[in-house]
Design a protein around this nucleic acid. Structure first.
Lengths: 196, 196
DNA sequence: GAACAATCGGACTGACAGTCCGCATATTAC
DNA sequence: GTAATATGCGGACTGTCAGTCCGATTGTTC
């Protein structure tokens, strides 16, 4: 719709160019090489433009991760079982962690860059918060006896970029999936189930 | 030859001064304020001296953490039960994690600084490696069916500086201890016992 | 097509990690 | 005590980076 709040065409074009440039640099050179000067140069825009769009380095990497996590977000919000809201919590949680493992294994470099950039305030990152809220929600239903806030953070700790890299480099993506699954089933199996 | 390898008296004095200055700055201003220029100034030495002693920022913070973790290292290596080698693995592991929780809760700022500084190569940090090796060793005895390498990293993930800060700020050190303990007992209780 | 606001670009700033080398001093030999 | 020497010292210097700022430019509206 043509609301008074329109993003100008060049602004849109530049935002896309910047995101694309950041992805290219990340993929080609690793996260340590990706300074915002270089992103701006690669995107063919000025440095100020990058900062106006994304605020700072953190904002840029958050936007990138959010983009990559979009499908998963939709799947848990409105998708079909086992990720979607129709399944019971006991099914959704392992399915969600499986999906996270797959996402993490496929985006190690981005994950590492994001982690470094958001180190200061991990707990305000929208993607992280969404994941945490989702786990918290599921755990509250299935394991109300736990400190679900802490447990959710601890579970997300399994997707620490360095750990993911270490595991995937020594055993491939399957090892990550398998290990995550066996650790979580062990954990969840043992906690007392809620009484009806 | 009578010990050709002597550390000069001024070198020793400066090393202590630097470590002390770093602790003071960390305690008084938080980790973001602690640049190596400031540490050098606070210690009353030149910047070059800091780098000659510790190599780089990472080295300085590793040395600090190692110092704070010294008592725990001794306790697990040669101390009395339940931390020491006389106890069975099923007892030592929870005891060790309890001790880590206490250590972490009491050194949040150092932990955060160390984590930022070592982000690049967490898995080469001597203190982290020692802790990981200890957990791996204990798990191998008590739960050989697990991916013990992964599980040890995941357990150490509970002591992520941001998580520790979050939990301690909202519930005090007791909440950290309690949550760590309940999560680990849940996990360890459930895993199948080793087959004879 | 003119007026206007949104956007652009890149020079500039300040801070930091890490290097380098001439100078100072602790230690040793005598 | 003094001289020789090696060890350590200090801080100026470099290169890089995140983030700011403002005159120039360009898209949009009427």
């Amino acid at each position: 719709m043509s609301q008074p709040v329109h993003e100008r065409a060049d602004a849109t074009r530049n935002r896309r160019a910047i995101l694309h440039a950041a992805e290219v640099l990340l993929a080609e050179h690793g996260f340590e090489y990706v300074s915002l000067d270089k992103v701006a140069a690669e995107a063919g825009v000025g440095k100020g433009t990058v900062f106006r769009r994304f605020g700072n380095r953190t904002g840029l990497l958050r936007a990138l991760l959010e983009e990559r996590a979009l499908l998963l977000s939709e799947a848990i919000a409105t998708g079909p079982p086992p990720l979607g809201p129709e399944s019971p919590a006991e099914v959704r949680l392992p399915a969600f962690l499986d999906a996270l493992a797959e996402l993490a294994a496929g985006n190690i470099v981005l994950l590492a860059a994001h982690e470094r950039a958001c180190a200061e305030d991990k707990y305000t990152d929208p993607t992280y918060l969404r994941w945490h809220a989702h786990i918290t929600d599921l755990l509250t239903r299935s394991h109300p006896d736990l400190d679900v806030d802490f447990a959710a953070h601890a579970l997300l700790g399994m997707f620490d970029a360095d750990l993911v890299r270490h595991i995937v480099d020594n055993g491939g993506p399957e090892r990550l999936t398998t290990s995550v699954r066996s650790l979580t089933t062990a954990l969840l199996r043992s906690a007392p189930a809620p009484k009806p």
